[in-house]
């Protein structure tokens, strides 16, 4: 895992555009779901899954694999798109998201979906589970790494702060959490509903190694993750500043797109925008 070359960055951008198309397609076909948070977290997942994590879709239960807990479970269209692209399950499944009998549930289910490490959806619970996985890795004398992806609205849950204390108390330096800080929650801007600020200081005060990055910049993200993995003696929190609905102009920074599927017109427009970006080579 070294610095990204120009070609690698272009590859990641291209992958992300494809995955964004998948997310739009999935949610459109499902007729419900959470596109906003899926689009904001996607670039974080892309860097982790394509450049950092040691995983093998052919043996998803390998004891030594790295683990990622998507604590903000409602963003699962992004995770499903990544897992399908990597080959954890057939891509056909994506188009049945949220349909009766489909293994891809509205929120992640570890028993139904290969590659999903923990069932989440009821917010605030994933960090505790990730802590447990980090403790297990230590008991096993294993070098495997544990990642937890938290939503910004999610960390209004008290359990997150119980888990924050635990991770630093147990010095879980094999744990890296990433905060998808898009600033929006269902009812509006976090700063209006219930502010997190000063959020970096809070995690520092809880004993974490805190890094702050642009959550859509692959080079910065990878650098922060590297620093987090090298840090000893404390867990790391990467505060990733993101844009809710990232990549689709009319979804960006709009609270309404937290949990709503695009209609036919919006669906076409979203795909057209992604096509244009592909042509222009921008993300």
């Amino acid at each position: 895992m070294s610095t990204l070359s120009v070609a690698e960055i272009e590859n990641l951008k291209s992958t992300a555009r494809k995955l964004r198309r998948d997310i739009i397609e999935m949610v459109y076909r499902a007729g419900s779901g959470h596109p906003g948070g899926a689009l904001s977290v996607l670039d974080i997942l892309v860097v982790l899954y394509y450049k950092v994590m040691c995983i093998d879709p052919a043996s998803p239960q390998d004891r030594e694999r790295d683990r990622l807990v998507l604590s903000k479970g409602h963003a699962c269209p992004a995770l499903y798109a990544v897992l399908a692209d990597l080959g954890f399950f057939p891509s056909d499944w994506l188009w049945e998201l949220r349909k009766t009998g489909c293994p891809l549930q509205g929120h992640p289910d570890m028993r139904k979906t290969p590659g999903v490490e923990m069932s989440t959806g009821s917010l605030g619970q994933g960090l505790s589970a990730a802590n447990g996985m980090a403790l297990a890795a230590r008991l096993d004398n294993s070098g495997r790494r544990i990642f937890a992806i938290l939503g910004d609205g999610e960390i209004q849950e008290g359990q997150i702060w119980e888990a924050a204390l635990s991770a630093s108390h147990f010095r879980l330096d094999n744990l890296t959490a990433v905060l998808d800080y898009n600033g929006l929650q269902i009812d509006g801007w976090l700063r209006d509903v219930k502010s997190l600020e000063p959020v970096a200081e809070k995690w520092k005060a809880f004993g974490w190694n805190v890094l702050e990055v642009d959550g859509h910049d692959y080079t910065s993200l990878l650098e922060a993750i590297k620093k987090a993995l090298e840090h000893r003696g404390a867990p790391s929190m990467i505060i990733a500043h993101t844009v809710k609905g990232k990549g689709i102009s009319f979804m960006e920074n709009q609270p309404d797109w937290h949990g709503k599927a695009p209609g036919e017109e919006e669906y076409r427009q979203a795909l057209a925008e992604l096509d244009t970006q592909e042509g222009e080579g921008v993300r």
Partner: peptide, 18 residues
Amino acid sequence: GISEADMMGTAAGLAASG
């Protein structure tokens, strides 16, 4: 510590790891 919710989740993470 006095964190039952966190304890249940941590127990789940350990169990998920075998």
